[in-house]
Design a binder for these strands. Structure first.
Length: 847
DNA sequence: TTTTCCCGCCAGTCG
DNA sequence: CGACTGGCGGGAAAA
């Protein structure tokens, strides 16, 4: 047997990396390698370490190889996997090995499973008092795996700051304590890098390619290129969790870590929180356009993404799904982690600043380190204590800012208004802003503190959302639809009550509308790409008629391109920031705002209090308290109790363009008036649907509900259906209900979210996104809350003129469907919107 | 087939 | 140096 194995190994070895062999230096090493190989078979590992030897069973014994072979031969035995326990195969392999019993199907050796085992060893929230050291040797030994694999896991965990390296061979376990901050940060950085736009572009491009014979528009991305240039890889750090061992970190790329962070960023910035593998790979590769040719590179990247995805999956942050498109289904992953990580607007600013400094070489921020400059030059990063200080000071500032009295809901708008004198009314959101506003924290859940975050935090939180109730389909489970605050006027009376708040945040990210022309033309890309901001604004404009001021010349047109040149963008952004700050300055200090310390993180309650809008907060809190019980129960049931928030119709009027809205399943009780049973809607068993809209252009408007009044259910349903509703049972991730972290359960996510909000409901809730803001605007919504027409329908139907082919929506029977559209908005005047829609559904797949 | 992704060679670092 | 790390990609199991 051995012999056999040996031979095969050898053979493979020979085949291995031809190029390597060719290299001169390699040759010599080759020999060595062969030897190694032999050794390997004999039992010793690659990296003999004490741990190994002492280690219990040697995985690498010939037997194991044998096992593998056998397993291959007789697959039947497998299926035992699934044990999350860390047991590592019981002891040593010998006993088992022989039988063949052990077959180790590939699955049993999967990184994901290994990660599970690993995670099982540590609590989600470690007790600081205890020793949280992790010894790689021990872990490798106990889990009975080769070290190499542990590195893979550690690298991604490190990227999430769930562990940090202390020294060689030693890591410290942080668990999920820092996760909220990390996510906030990553989101922020992701925004800065405009990953949302990039993704959009890529998607669009691929789409175009499909349809367009031409195939290449490469140019488009000058913008990207330019930007890209700058887009270096960063390893984002949290202030509290810096590297402990400088030596350790200093070197190298750490690409897996960076890649992992970037990957996560993609989820955080994309609106439907679904990222397809190929898109991710392209973005990660860097310059994508050229990427096409580089198959191998792409392949490698994908492999790595799978590695990362496997650990993220075991962390329950993402889950595998498939996106079905015209072409067929593509592997993708959906974010199932917390949605409400503290948003850090301010932080953003901070980060940006820091980054800039970095670039200028002035200083390095501790938040993000630049590992390499894009093109390849690498930067060594060092961390300066001074940076920390800097960060702190910034935070302080932010804190001040945060304290500003402005009502939570308002700030963004106000700011905007300030900036743009011309059109105060229609707020134009920068993507960032949009995001921020979009991000909802649940009152309880919120972690609090993000360093900066207050701003985004409060507004988003409660008030902004306006819940709407939908008639239920069948069983009458009601849904609430939340409108995005942004769409609402600043003062909506939204009651704090909304209680359940946001479930999913919607944002519209990137590029909103592109005109078809733009698409074709290279120009578009640049504009679009460059300005992340612009797009949202564009969207806005479209929605509200007021666009004119934005682009005076093209008032009606939504062309992003006009607007922004990068420089301009910068200016704008800066201005905004300033405005923001200034505006907010008065606000009250939030205690925690700046600290990232884990401790803070965990305290949800306080953070809430911090929120700017006291009233709202108070209400919320009260509400929450009351609700808590209910919520809990509901959550279990899978329903989210939502309270209807009374809206004033008046507020809604035109503005209604809600960029985003969602539907949340409401508990029956809350339904009261609205419930009606509509069977007609499709559906499946699951009461809820998720609707995603494409980020891109924001295409469908959801203006449907302007007031709390609903359009007739029938209409609604119809619309929804058309929009692409899909019944989405959705897998529901489980979250632990309490805000607090429960240290105990490793597996459960401590969700910051209140149970009702929890993702778990995701399956049940409908997430509606406005696809295109544009058309709807004016007429649609009557101030009175009249039902609006759904433009989306139209849009969907109007494919023809467009150069872009339109795609039909799909429903997925069970799963969530995501509709993506990259639409282009036509000139406002026309109202025609071209929205080629493409997207389809995401099916949840494996568990 | 395609999608996943395990395995482990080997190179760069570090102690 | 030897031990750690971890990039990388062959190629095979799984879908």
């Amino acid at each position: 047997m051995f012999l056999l194995i040996f031979k095969s190994r050898l053979l493979s070895y020979c085949l291995y990396k031809p190029q390597a062999l060719t290299k001169t230096p390699r040759k010599a090493s080759t020999q060595g390698t062969v030897l190694t190989e032999i050794q390997y078979n004999m039992g010793p590992l690659m990296t003999p370490t004490k741990g190994r030897e002492t280690g219990t069973g040697e995985p690498w014994t010939p037997t194991s190889n044998l096992k593998m072979l056998m397993s291959a031969a007789s697959p039947e035995i497998r299926n035992r996997e699934k044990e999350l326990c860390m047991d590592s195969e019981g002891g040593d392999d010998h006993g088992l090995g022989e039988e063949g019993e052990k077959q180790i199907s590939r699955k049993e050796k999967s990184l994901g499973l290994l990660c599970h085992k690993f995670l099982a060893r540590y609590p989600d929230y470690p007790n600081p008092a205890l020793n949280n050291d992790i010894s790689l040797d021990d872990v490798a030994t106990e889990l009975n795996v080769e070290r190499r694999r542990i590195y893979d896991i550690m690298n991604v965990l490190e990227s999430l700051h769930m562990v940090s390296r202390l020294a060689k061979n030693r890591y410290t376990w942080h668990g999920r304590a820092n996760l909220p901050q990390t996510l906030a940060k990553l989101w922020q950085v992701g925004e800065e890098h405009r990953y949302g736009q990039q993704m959009q572009q890529i998607r669009q491009r691929s789409l175009e390619k499909e349809f367009d014979s031409d195939g290449e528009e490469k140019e488009n991305d000058e913008v990207e290129g330019g930007e890209q240039g700058q887009k270096e890889m960063f390893f984002v750090e949290l202030p509290g969790v810096e590297f402990k061992a400088a030596s350790v970190n200093s070197r190298k790329d750490k690409s897996l870590r960076v890649m992992s962070q970037k990957f996560v960023m993609l989820f955080l910035v994309s609106t439907p929180r679904v990222v397809s593998l190929d898109v991710a790979a392209r973005i990660l590769i860097g310059e994508d356009q050229v990427a096409d040719q580089d198959k191998s590179k792409f392949k490698t990247k994908v492999r790595r993404l799978y590695d990362i995805a496997n650990v993220l999956r075991s962390l329950k942050l993402i889950e595998k799904v498939h996106v079905t498109e015209e072409k067929g289904r593509k592997p993708a992953f959906e974010w199932t982690g917390p949605e409400d990580f503290p948003s850090v607007k301010e932080t953003t600013a901070t980060t940006a600043t820091a980054k800039r400094k970095l670039e200028s070489r002035t200083s390095v921020d501790n938040c993000a380190k630049n590992l390499f400059s894009s093109p390849g030059s690498k930067r060594s990063f060092t961390r300066h204590p001074s940076l920390i200080k800097l960060a702190k000071s910034i935070q302080e500032d932010r804190r001040k800012i945060n304290s500003a009295p402005t009502s939570p809901a308002l700030p963004a708008h106000q700011q905007k208004a300030a900036k743009k004198p011309g059109a105060p009314q229609p707020p134009v959101l920068t993507p960032t802003e949009a995001r921020a506003s979009t991000v909802h924290l649940t009152p309880r859940a919120q972690f609090t503190l993000q360093p900066t975050g207050a701003m985004s935090f409060h507004p988003a939180q409660c008030s902004p959302l306006i819940p709407m109730l939908l008639p239920q389909h069948q069983e009458g489970s009601p849904y609430a639809i939340y409108m995005h605050p942004s769409s609402l006027r600043p003062h909506p009376l939204t009651r704090p009550q909304p209680t359940s708040l946001a479930v999913r945040s919607m944002t519209f990210e990137d590029k909103t509308g592109r005109s078809p022309s733009d698409v074709t033309v290279q120009g578009h890309s640049s504009a679009t790409n460059k300005l992340p901001t612009s797009s949202p604004s564009a969207l806005k404009r479209v929605c509200s008629e007021r666009t004119s001021e934005e682009s005076p010349s093209k008032a009606k047109r939504i062309d992003p391109s006009t607007r922004d040149t990068s420089p301009k963008l910068c200016e704008i952004l800066q201005a905004r920031l300033k405005a923001r700050r200034g505006g907010l300055v008065s606000s009250r200090p939030s205690p925690r705002a700046l600290h990232l310390d884990p401790e803070f993180v965990n305290t949800p309650g306080s953070s809430v209090a911090v929120a700017a809008n006291q009233t709202l907060e108070q209400n919320l809190e009260t509400f929450l308290e009351k609700e808590e019980k209910v919520a809990t129960s509901d959550s279990e049931a899978g329903l989210t109790p939502v309270r209807a928030v009374p809206l004033n119709p008046q507020h809604l009027h035109t503005e209604t363009l809600i960029p985003t809205g969602y539907l949340i399943p409401i508990s029956q009780q809350s339904l009261f008036s609205y419930k009606d049973h509509n069977t007609e809607s499709s559906k499946a068993f699951t009461p809820t649907y998720n609707i995603y809209h494409t980020p891109t252009a924001g295409i469908h408007t959801f203006n449907i509900f302007s007031g709390h009044r609903f359009p007739s259910p029938a209409i609604l349903n119809f619309t929804l259906q058309n929009l692409g509703l899909i019944p989405g049972p959705g897998s529901v991730p489980t979250y632990s209900p309490g805000t607090g972290h429960t240290p105990e359960h490793p597996s459960s996510l401590p969700s910051p979210l209140p149970p009702h909000l929890g993702l778990h409901q995701r399956g049940g809730m409908v997430f509606v996104k406005p696809m295109s803001p544009v058309p709807v605007q004016h007429q649609m919504t009557g101030p009175g809350g009249q039902p609006l027409t759904l433009i989306s329908l139209q849009q969907m139907t109007t494919p023809k003129g467009t150069a872009l082919p339109q795609h039909s929506f799909f429903h997925t029977p069970l799963a969530t469907v995501v509709t993506t559209s990259h639409g282009h908005t036509a000139p406002a005047g026309t109202k025609t919107v071209y929205i080629p829609q493409r997207k389809l559904d995401v099916t949840a797949e494996d568990t």
